[in-house]
Design a protein around this nucleic acid. Structure first.
Lengths: 329, 329
DNA sequence: AATCTAGACTAGAGCGCTCTAGTTTGTACA
DNA sequence: TGTACAAACTAGAGCGCTCTAGTCTAGATT
């Protein structure tokens, strides 16, 4: 079956191919009447514009590539939502690429986006090393989100700020022994730890940092050791919600009530934290806003390809739920 | 800055454009030595193949479109994972389109995929009316997942089977008064209800169906009414996990313990059901397997465009966690 | 009446590839 | 020595569109 092309429509109406193109793209230079006739004929013939051909023939400037690190993570859905809203307003098309949890597909997905000739790539949560990111950014303009990369447009959330807000909240409630359940330092993300450390120091308190992993089980074990130890903390700030869940598990195991016996704060405001019977106090990163911001940078980059790179920082907010309260008397 | 094209690489090496094409696609007909020289020159010149041009020039047959109804729903991530695994093995490219929770973008996203000239569209969780789906399926081959459409390749999960398994589990535990918290009938999904009804009838029990919505709050209210009423059920089977959460809320409000005082089962095995302090017994749909199955149908459709449509049904399994147990004495 | 101009429309040159239908080359066989 | 044949390679015709640089009307301006 022969595909209907623009040529067919043009011939059918008795105009040139170029005019059909203008009509379909709603561009000026076509009389209203002719436009009607063209669109009508198109519908009649069952014409479907070929976007691939359009992309090849056009001069670009209207396609954003979007890289999503992990489809399982709700935060990326929010990020995407924000980016899409802005892209829609600007009438840009989106082309998606998806990574894998372990980061093993990042390079491949990015390569595909580059080969797809998108004008700029918005990358949510890349796990690639900085040097590799920079190499790719030389070929196709990039906006890195969550993970900032020097000399590359970036939109990040101020983790230090979030950690400070969480720690201050606990101090304000009257806690004096506040522990931080930290992420592995190998991942390079130290900001949450720093935020905790400086706030504790500023309050003249003693820091208590225990290193854990991303797994809920490990976090439960590490939190348990803390709780059973001498001088047990009255509040625990976990590096993310997953770890905070582990802390809650540890509390439950000991018959302790979160928010009353021990206060717990997580980080991310993931769907976990909103589950029933949990209602975790946490730090919210506002993915939609980050996504919007990233898209704006991307559009700017299309306008001005040579402009110096820009970093944007957004400030997360504390979401107080029921796992924090004044320390037990 | 001029883009480097295949032509440039060819000229640089002193061969024809066609040979460069073959070399880059790892096709036979190029001597090992020449291939090396071509790839080396390409690297040196900074050549990046243009996928858009390739798609236009090629005869197709290697691109799957994937439509994801909702990025926020974990199930779709699983479905995608399954499809991607199969597509990778078959060396097919994926082009993504994303809908919106309310279904308002389904048509648009599908249209984009059609215009992108994918060979077949794998649609996860379409909300479009059957007639519209069929119209689109005439233009581009489709595989519908979760939602089956007559005369269109479909992969569905047997909701009736799942509901039967859930209900039987409760009966086996000794429950006699088992209520079903049903979804609104307006959405057309009646299979879970049917599964419940027929199992209850087969056991000679009296069905008790209460209609609720998708919201957790409504479900809590409706479950509460059930629990407070005369002849309150000892077990409640909710049409999905979200609603089951509402049931748990209602129990908590009344000081009842799920699994001991009242048994609760959800449906979907969503991340909600695995949250701490919840551990909901539920029905697991195995999204990865569905995704694989859908991709296989898609590949088959590319091979044999004219073949009669095929429906595949997968059977969900019951995941017993801690919200179900023998009825209180 | 001659000139200008804006709007409507067209011709045709690409965009960067893949594919078909060759041509050339080296080697094996009779 | 001539014929056969596979492997290596090439020429050039598209794929379906967008864009540039026009042409051709009418009506407005002098």
């Amino acid at each position: 079956m022969m595909r209907i092309t623009m040529e067919d429509v043009a011939r059918h109406v008795g105009v040139s191919r170029a005019l059909v193109s203008l009509a379909y793209r709603n561009r000026p230079g076509v009389s209203t009447e002719t436009r009607e006739r063209i669109l009508h004929a198109g519908r009649e013939l069952g014409y479907v514009p070929n976007r691939v051909a359009a992309r090849l023939a056009g001069h670009g400037g209207n396609t954003l590539g979007v890289f999503l690190q992990d489809l399982h993570n709700d935060l990326f859905a929010d990020l995407y939502e924000g980016t899409r809203a802005v892209a829609d307003e600007a009438h840009k098309h989106l082309v998606l690429g998806v990574g894998a949890l372990d980061g093993g597909r990042d390079a491949e997905a990015l390569e595909t986006l580059a080969q797809s000739r998108v004008d700029v790539v918005v990358a949510f949560g890349l796990q690639l090393p900085d040097t590799e990111v920079r190499t790719i950014a030389e070929r196709v303009p990039m906006v890195c989100v969550l993970r900032g990369v020097a000399d590359v447009d970036s939109v990040v959330s101020d983790n230090r700020h979030g950690a400070r807000a969480a720690t201050e909240h606990l101090i304000d409630l009257g806690h004096r022994r506040i522990a931080f359940l930290a992420n592995p330092p190998s991942d390079g993300y130290m900001d949450r730890r720093h935020g905790y450390m400086e706030t504790i120091a500023a309050a003249g308190l003693r820091p208590q940092v225990v290193q854990t992993t991303y797994s809920r089980e490990t976090a439960a074990k590490d939190a348990g050791a803390l709780l059973d130890g001498a001088d047990a903390p009255t509040a625990i700030f976990a590096h993310n919600d997953q770890a905070a869940m582990g802390v809650l598990d540890a509390l439950a195991l000991r018959g302790l009530t979160p928010g009353r016996d021990v206060s717990v704060i997580g980080y991310d405001n993931s769907s976990l934290s909103k589950a029933p019977g949990t209602s975790l106090t946490t730090v919210d990163v506002d993915g939609v806003a980050l996504g919007r911001s990233a898209a704006e940078l991307a559009l700017r980059r299309i306008e001005a390809p040579g402009a110096p790179s820009e970093w944007r920082t957004s400030f997360p907010t504390l979401v107080v739920r029921s796992t924090t309260g004044a320390p037990a008397a």
